[in-house]
């Protein structure tokens, strides 16, 4: 029998449509001009086609970001869906870029597209990976810092999915605090 063309096969739909954004730091341009929407996807198959096609995060140059957000949410604090929210933040020292960064990012993406946080998945907005010379960061953004139950549940599941030891503590920071911080470290609103 003829092989069915791939575009006619049933793909596995995701609960949400997601958008991939790419940020490349070019100091000659304003911040918004450096942020580009790459593409959107809403099936398991299209997620992998995209993931397998683009550069691994660990191979990006310093100053670049990937962001994955639900369709309709821009990857910035100012977006209406983000402004009351915050982020679970994972910071990685430089030596972990080679060993852990791509693995942690992929696990993060699978948590998002697989809706890993049960009834609290609706609180998830997206995730960002920052490649920086002084240390890389991965952050999972949620919509509302006051939804304590949701934030804590998401943090616990996320930490478990990343395979972090119970001795490791990760913190959740409100975007409002990060945006107005006077030192380089915003205070943690929650920890798990």
């Amino acid at each position: 029998r003829d092989v069915m063309p791939t575009d006619q096969m049933d793909k596995h739909p995701l609960q949400n449509r997601w958008a991939l954004w790419f940020f490349k730091n070019d100091k000659s341009k304003i911040w918004q001009a450096n942020l580009r929407l790459v593409t959107k996807f809403d099936t398991v198959e299209d997620f992998w086609a995209l993931h397998n096609h683009i550069q691994l995060a660990s191979k990006l140059t310093s100053g670049c970001d990937y962001s994955i957000f639900k369709d309709g949410i821009e990857p910035m604090w100012e977006d209406n869906k983000n402004k009351r929210g915050g982020r679970w933040l994972i910071t990685l020292p430089k030596q972990q870029r080679r060993t852990d960064l791509d693995h942690f990012w992929l696990e993060t993406l699978m948590c998002l597209i697989g809706e890993a946080f049960d009834e609290y998945s609706d609180d998830v907005c997206g995730a960002v990976i920052n490649i920086r010379a002084k240390g890389d960061k991965i952050a999972l953004w949620t919509k509302e810092t006051e939804n304590k139950e949701a934030v804590i549940h998401i943090g616990r599941v996320y930490k478990e999915r990343l395979g972090l030891s119970s001795k490791v503590v990760i913190g959740y920071q409100a975007h409002a605090d990060t945006a107005t911080k006077s030192s380089s470290i915003a205070k943690n609103k929650f920890v798990v």
């Binding site: 609960q15 086609a49 809706e115």
Partner: peptide, 20 residues
């Protein structure tokens, strides 16, 4: 209901041919 996929299910599709 909500379309939830665990990591093993998702990983099973990583190297399947797909087109976008």
């Amino acid at each position: 209901g909500k379309k939830q996929y665990d990591r093993d299910f998702l990983l099973g599709f990583q190297f399947m041919p797909a087109c976008i």
